[in-house]
Nucleic acid binder design. Sequence first.
DNA 1: CGTGTACTTGATACAAGTCAAGAATAGTGG
DNA 2: CCACTATTCTTGACTTGTATCAAGTACACG
Lengths: 248, 248
Amino acid sequence: MDRSVALKQILKKLSAIGELSTEERAEVATLLGTMRRVEKRRDIVQDGSSPNHSTLLVEGLACRYKLLANGERQILSFNVPGDIVDLYSFVLRKMDHAILSLSNCVICEIPHESIKKVAATHAHLLKLLWRDTLVDSSVFRTWMINNSRRLGEARAAHLFCEVYTKLQSVGLAEDDGFGLPISQVDLGDCLGMTPVHVNRVMKQLKDDGLLTMNKGYVRILDWKKLVAFASFDPGYLQLTEEAEAAVR
Amino acid sequence: MDRSVALKQILKKLSAIGELSTEERAEVATLLGTMRRVEKRRDIVQDGSSPNHSTLLVEGLACRYKLLANGERQILSFNVPGDIVDLYSFVLRKMDHAILSLSNCVICEIPHESIKKVAATHAHLLKLLWRDTLVDSSVFRTWMINNSRRLGEARAAHLFCEVYTKLQSVGLAEDDGFGLPISQVDLGDCLGMTPVHVNRVMKQLKDDGLLTMNKGYVRILDWKKLVAFASFDPGYLQLTEEAEAAVR
DNA sequence: CGTGTACTTGATACAAGTCAAGAATAGTGG
DNA sequence: CCACTATTCTTGACTTGTATCAAGTACACG
C-alpha cells in the first residue's frame, strides 16, 4: 500500500488527458487521502450512497454496475488502476449505481473537501477531472451502441477489445492476453445476454480463432482479426497516442 | 429570436441542478453569444468537429446521434430547450457524435472563451455545468440498460416516458401527449430495432391501450399504466421535485 | 471425498430481422 | 387543383438470433 504508487497512478491518468504543470502536480498530491485494501467481490461504493470522498483505484480491477428492479444486474463499465471510479459522487452527491471490486484491490480516498479546495484555485485541474468523467460517458455511449445493435459475437468481441486496450494502457496486459476474473454470468451482465448464450458465443469466438477465456484468463488468438470483427475503434477511450499505438 | 428567452432557459436549467446567487445569474448572462435559427433536420453540430463555442438549445427539439461504420445510425438522446447540447466539446475539444435538429430550432452560441473566463472566477458555476454533463451520462447509462435487456414494447414505452417527462419539465407537453416530429425509422435508430419491428411494437402499445403515435404527435392513453409497464423511474433525469411531481 | 459452483450441451419456444409488396400520406410541379 | 412521385406506414411469410428449460460434466474447495 505504497502511497507513491497512488500518486503515480493518478498523475499518469491526468497527464494522459491533458498537460500538467509542476505546480499542478504538487497540487494533485494534496488530493490523496486514506488508502485501503478491498477484498475481491465487495462493493467499493454503494448504490444510493452519498460519500464525502471519491475513490482512486490504485491496484486491481473493478466494475460499475446497477441492480435492476427485476433483480437483474447490468455491468456498466470496467475500471483499471488510475481510474477515479466515483468522481460522479463529487458532482452529483448521490450515486445512482455501485462499484464492485473484481479482484483484491487497493484504493485511495480523495476527500471531496480537497477537490473543492483545489477546484477553487486550479480551474485547469478541475477541467481535467471533468474531462475524465466525460470519457466515461463516451464509454457508456459506445456500450449503448454495441449492446443495442449487434449480434452476440460482435458484442463480446468488442468488449474484450476494450478491456484489453485499457489494461494495455496501464501496463496490465500480457502480449497474448490478460487476466479478467469474471465468470460467464458476469459477461452476460455486461452484454445483456443469458449465461447460456454467452457460453455459445464464447465457443463461437474460439472456433473462429479469435480468443478464448479460461480460468480468468483471456487469450487473444488473433488481435487484428478480432479488432476487425468487432469494428473496434479505440478513439472513444481517449488514450494517448502511445497507448493507442501499443495495441496495434 | 428574443435574447431574453435564451437567458431564461439557461437560468431555469442551471437553477434546476443547483442554487444560483444573484451575482452568478449576472455572470451566466455574459455567456450568451450569437443567436441563430436552424431549419429542421439539419446538423447543429457535426461529428468530428472542434467548435469554439457550445450551443444552447432555445427553441425546438434536437437529438444526439452517431453514424456507424456500417451506415446505421444510433440516436443517443433527445434534447429540449434549455439543454446545452454540446458542452462536451468545451471539455474534450472534438465531438465524437453529432447533434441534429428535429424541428425548426433557435439556438444560442456560448463561446468557449466566455465559459473559460467564467470558470476561472466562478468554480460553482463550472460545477453546475459539469453536473449537467453528468446528467447526460446518467441518461446514456439508462438507455444502455433499456436497450440491452428489455423487449421491444418495454424499450419503446420507456423512451416515450422519458421524452414526455423532459418535455413536461420545460412546459412543452400537453395533458394528453406531446409533439415529436420523428418517423418510425428514427424510433428504430433510438431503440436499435428495424422499422418493421418498430411498427409492430407501436401497434402492440396501441392495442394495449398505452399510447399512439400519429403524424408527429404521441398521445398518452394511460400514463400510470405506461409508467408501470416501462418500469420508468425519472430519478436519473435529475429533475426538480416540482418537475417530477407534474408528471405523476 | 463430497459438495457446490461454473461451464457445457441439447431441445424447444419466442423475439426480432429479412424480404417483399401494398396502402396511406406528404410533397411537387404543371 | 390534380396527377405524379417519394416517403412513410402497414402487413404477411419466412428465417435467424436469443431465451428458456433441463440435464450433465468439469473443476475448486473444504
